[in-house]
Simulated scan of single mutants.
Amino acid sequence: MKTHFKTIVISDVHLGTKGSKAKEASRFLKQYSCENLILNGDIIDGWQLKKSGTWKRKHTRFFNRMLKMIEQENTKVFYLRGNHDDFLDQILPLQIGNLSILADMIYESNGKKYFITHGDIFDSITTNLRWIAYLGDMGYTFLLWLNRLVNYHRRKRGLGYFSLSQYVKGKVKSAVSYIDQYEEELAKMAKAKNCDGIICGHIHKAENRIIDGIEYLNSGDWVETMSALAEDHEGNWQLIYYNEMDFSQDKTDSVQLIPDTAPTENVRELKTVAFNKLNDGLTPPNFM
């Protein structure tokens, strides 16, 4: 039987890139059911698809899994725009049945209110100096390529996985300072919006902690960390790491159904498109 959560948040899957752990992300979603699935930005990497990225079948399967959750489990899906999938600016806000595409949202649950955003809007480098952001993206892509090479040799020697980019982030003082400042600024934004917490992604660093009385929740990524946030029906949040999951028993045969208690969203009026059935087959969008 699947474990049933009220809400699951994942971000930074970067579909269309070599580093994307799309297969693992799809397998993760098969293990759980939820009332609300929030895809918090950078799910599709439009930047890489414009340059050298490749769309593969496993990337389409991720969306097929999402559509099955909508159709078979009546899951409400909220896709929030990130900086790498900023092509969504052309269509948002948009609602198609249980799928909503938004810039950001307010999520209310168990008497608490959370501001949910990918997080790039608070990154002045990404917002105001786009060419520097692209340069940083190139450097990160190179680190991921080097990371695959390092871990290939580690596997041959019987050693475990090593995250080169996380190691570099931890050693470079400017990177550590940037992450600290980023987390503090988002906590301030949540407080300014009279929210109890902030849920974000963007910096590929999973976190669940209190900053100046504000719950700071970061879902991590599906390039290296392979983590997600999950909320139970009592309003408790936890980080789930794919590498710590137990796949010894098949949980996909049945689902424990929970009465629908969907959250109240404080979002702009959405455009609505009627449809009878979602199409299982997906093709990647055109970013040119």
Rank of each mutant, 00 (worst) to 15 (best):
Q181L: 12
N110K: 15
K112P: 02
P93Q: 05
E35L: 03
R65P: 04
I203Y: 13
Q90H: 07
K205E: 15
K76W: 14
S33A: 13
K23A: 08
F142S: 02
T252A: 04
S26V: 05
V13K: 00
E71A: 15
S227Y: 03
V176K: 14
I116L: 08
A25P: 06
M245C: 08
G235M: 08
E207P: 03
W47I: 12
Y114G: 01
Y241R: 13
V172K: 14
G41W: 06
I199P: 06
E234C: 03
W237F: 15
E244S: 13
Q256L: 13
W55P: 06
D120M: 09
S109D: 11
G170H: 11
T117I: 12
I8A: 03
M66V: 15
D250S: 14
D123E: 11
Q72H: 11
C34F: 02
R81H: 06
P285E: 10
K112C: 06
E73C: 11
L278W: 05
A187Y: 07
G136H: 00
Y216P: 01
I125F: 06
R268G: 11
T117P: 02
Q181C: 08
N236R: 10
I258T: 13
V223S: 00
F115C: 00
R157K: 14
S163K: 09
K251H: 10
P284C: 10
V176I: 12
I132L: 09
V255Y: 05
R268E: 11
